[in-house]
């Protein structure tokens, strides 16, 4: 790893300035992905701005919703009473990710900013447009069983690895950002990008912008929720595919629904059309299957990930089944 300069400002504004002014500076919070990328020479910042001591880790009620500080630890959020009561789906998604130790380090902001786990991105000796624009996409004609079925481009077919983000996009969260030009709010669905011609950009954050919090509006999704993650071992693995499902059911009729998938695109993949299929219908297997079919419209597979075309709808059905049955 290259040598770098290390600073630890105590105020957000100072941190923002430090990163804004220096082309090679970056924030570090939990470090669970950045340190890994630095060790492998994929990230080579010349300066790290440690934001861990900024006062951004509160979890509190805010304007008919929940505000979670960007530096709240994944474990703290997953175990938080307010979160479990108001947004249990988020707690489920968080606990499905990583390990207990990593959740004790990883922050909410950092979790969103995880980079893809694509093997080609991770190997300096193989092509990757995300890591080194213009070198080509190694996965396109390579080993792509983990890769995208939605929203990809011929420049990049990588997927976003976060579980938490799948829940947040389903829950209509908003990302609060503070930057050199002031503060702004980014709807979660617009936070991550599709690869297009610039796969090197994962998000719509601008240079120097610091995530300060995530707002989640209160909703009726306090009971019938489930996060279904399919992976190659029982725990501590990235998803082959995952589904976040939240239902509001009254007299066995679905009044409201939220549905999103992970492991299928360059960003957490909200399934709005499928949600619309669910609303007003009875919470039955037939309804779930119908929603799942709609959800998969437009999906396209590569050589090794065709199984996702079947695993996707099956996992949606399973997530909805479990959510509906949750007591």
């Amino acid at each position: 790893m290259n040598q770098f300069q290390y600073v630890r400002p105590s105020k957000p504004q100072a941190a923002i300035e430090a990163v804004t002014k220096d082309a090679n500076a970056t924030f570090i919070a939990g470090g669970t992905n950045l340190v890994d990328l630095m060790k492998r020479g994929i990230a080579t910042p010349q300066k790290l701005v440690d934001i861990n001591r900024l006062p951004l880790n509160k979890i509190e009620k805010e304007n008919n919703g929940l505000r979670i500080g960007a530096l709240a630890l994944n474990s703290a959020v997953a175990d938080d009473k307010l979160v479990r009561q108001k947004q249990p789906l988020l707690a489920l998604a968080l606990n499905a990710g990583a390990s207990a130790q990593l959740r004790n380090m990883a922050t909410v902001g950092g979790n969103m900013l995880q980079r893809t786990r694509c093997s080609y991105f991770y190997d300096l000796a193989m092509p990757c447009n995300k890591r080194e624009p213009g070198t080509g996409c190694g996965a396109l004609e390579g080993i792509n069983r983990m890769h995208a079925i939605f929203g990809f481009s011929d420049k990049c077919i990588a997927v976003h690895p976060s579980d938490m983000s799948v829940a947040l996009v389903a829950l209509d969260a908003t990302v609060l950002v503070s930057g050199p030009k002031g503060e702004r709010r980014i709807p979660f669905a617009d936070f991550h990008r599709l690869p297009g011609d610039t796969p090197e950009k994962d998000t719509n954050l601008e240079k120097g912008e610091l995530i300060t919090a995530v707002d989640i509006p209160d909703g009726p999704f306090t009971k019938h929720v489930h996060y279904q993650k399919v992976r190659e071992r029982a725990s501590y693995a990235f998803a082959l595919l995952s589904v976040a499902a939240a239902l509001d059911i009254e007299n066995n009729t679905i009044k409201a629904a939220r549905l999103a998938m992970g492991g299928v695109a360059h960003k957490p993949w909200r399934l709005t059309a499928a949600e619309q299929v669910l609303v007003g219908k009875p919470a039955t297997e037939a309804t779930f299957r119908q929603a799942a079919e709609v959800a998969m419209q437009g999906a396209k597979a590569f050589k090794h990930n065709a199984y996702k075309l079947k695993l996707g709808p099956n996992t949606i059905v399973q997530a909805l089944r479990t959510a509906a049955a949750a007591a």
């Binding site: 570090i28 470090g31 669970t32 340190v35 890994d36 390990s99 130790q101 990593l102 004790n104 380090m105």
Partner: peptide, 22 residues
């Protein structure tokens, strides 16, 4: 790389992967 847990220590009482933090 934080993928095995052999480096687990407690920092202020919390378990963490010591390999993934400076």
């Amino acid at each position: 790389y934080g993928q095995c847990g052999a480096c687990t220590v407690h920092v202020d009482g919390q378990r963490v992967n010591s390999c993934l933090s400076f």
